[in-house]
Nucleic acid binder design. Sequence first.
DNA 1: GCCAACGTTGGC
DNA 2: GCCAACGTTGGC
Length: 158
Amino acid sequence: MAKKYWLMKSEPDVWSYDDHAAEGVAEWDGIRNYQARNFMRDDFEIGDTVLFYHSNHKPPHVAGICEVVREAYPDSTAFDPDAKYYDPKSDPENPRWLMVDLKAVRKLERPVSLAEIKANPALADMRLVARGNRLSIMPVEKAEYEEILRMAKSDPED
DNA sequence: GCCAACGTTGGC
DNA sequence: GCCAACGTTGGC
């Protein structure tokens, strides 16, 4: 299977790219949406590349790059009554929720904002800019990924 | 803080 | 299986 590209959202107040980079390799837990889970379960492979996106931030932006280093396995936070994302309906014998491990690869040269992505015609088809999109994990085309890397190397005014 | 869009829940 | 009510996401 060819290497794939993803975008994953996190609120930087909760878990930022720098937090992740400080850990090196970290779990991506707390996904409680079936569509997002299914991407991890069915399509994530070791070596896939992830754009780390900061949502609920001013401005929202892509902050850095990660790599999938462990494929989907049960999200243990769903079983922990004290965890924020505890889900009593997830049975350890048949886990409802999954997580992956990501390794921080590098920060972008500069953040690439949602406004810039929206303004770039080459990125008009990204799911990120689709109307009403709320998915926290979504596939990204290789060309879109490369365009965002290119933008990060250029000035925002371009 | 507002609110549009969307997902989930639960009564029927 | 429908759908109204409710909760959440996330940009603005």
